[in-house]
């Protein structure tokens, strides 16, 4: 339990710090774009409502009849609160996952190697999934959701595995296998979206893709650095107690 306590403590602290930093960047750079995009999505939904014969292709929260909509936070402070909460919880989740991988691979996360963990996490959970499935705004058509989720998770897993292979093997064979594993999801190919024009203006979508990647990158930089710093303190405490 001693070891779990250390992982848990480091992950909760680092995850919370990184989650809150990411939340601030999201509120500044990302959420305004989501809100702006939703204006187009909602006006589109109303347009469909007015055309009696048209039925939406897929059920969506904005397109359900009134009175049947599930709970949703009220716009403003409540919505911001839940977004910050969810981002922080996701931050804790990523921190615990990183701690678990570090434990299984027996590579400690320290202040010295934190940058590698940050880059690895960013590649696995953000950049590599994003080159196949670019982060999309509300109101943009995508391929079937479960297919996208499956590809996203597979790509995250493959990218993480490739990074670990390089870190553990550190030889040419390891690097070649890692490259194959890394590229496999992209050679297989991500599910392709339907070829229909989106409701949202293109400039919102391009700004959105760049800014989500930016906020994720900062999240992973902070997470790695904070985790490494806290973990080094905890390891030093453990050593001084045991010795």
């Amino acid at each position: 339990m001693e070891m779990f306590r250390r992982i848990f403590f480091a992950a909760v602290l680092a995850g919370a710090v990184a989650g809150l930093v990411a939340s601030a960047i999201q509120q500044w750079r990302v959420v305004p774009l989501i809100l702006e995009a939703e204006r187009y999505e909602i006006s589109e939904a109303h347009a469909i409502d007015h055309e009696q014969d048209a039925t939406p292709a897929a059920p969506h929260l904005h397109e359900l009849p009134e009175g049947m909509e599930p709970w949703s936070p009220a716009d403003g402070l409540e919505r911001t609160f839940y977004t910050v909460l969810a981002t922080t919880l996701a931050g804790l989740g990523f921190a615990l996952l990183m701690g678990a991988v570090s434990t299984f691979a027996s590579i400690e996360i320290t202040a010295e190697n934190a940058l590698f963990w940050s880059v690895g996490g960013f590649l696995a959970f953000s950049l590599m999934p994003a080159i196949g499935l670019p982060p999309d705004l509300p109101g943009m058509a995508g391929a079937e959701l479960t297919q996208r989720q499956f590809w996203w998770l597979g790509t995250a897993f493959a990218t993480g595995a490739a990074a670990l292979l390089v870190a553990k093997l550190r030889n040419l064979a390891g690097a070649v296998i890692a490259l194959v594993v890394l590229l496999a999801p992209h050679i297989i190919g991500a599910p392709t979206p339907p070829d229909v024009p989106a409701d949202v203006p293109a400039h919102l979508a391009t700004a959105y893709a760049a800014n989500t990647l930016f906020s994720s990158f900062v999240f992973w930089l902070v997470l790695g650095a904070a985790y490494g710093w806290i973990n080094r303190k905890l390891l030093a405490q453990e050593t001084s107690r045991d010795g």
Partner: peptide, 18 residues
């Protein structure tokens, strides 16, 4: 309900959402 509460986070992290 969970989806709606975490909606903006899902989009902002780049998880496939809708």
């Amino acid at each position: 309900a969970v989806h709606n509460g975490a909606h903006d986070t899902r989009h902002a992290i780049g998880f496939p959402c809708h």
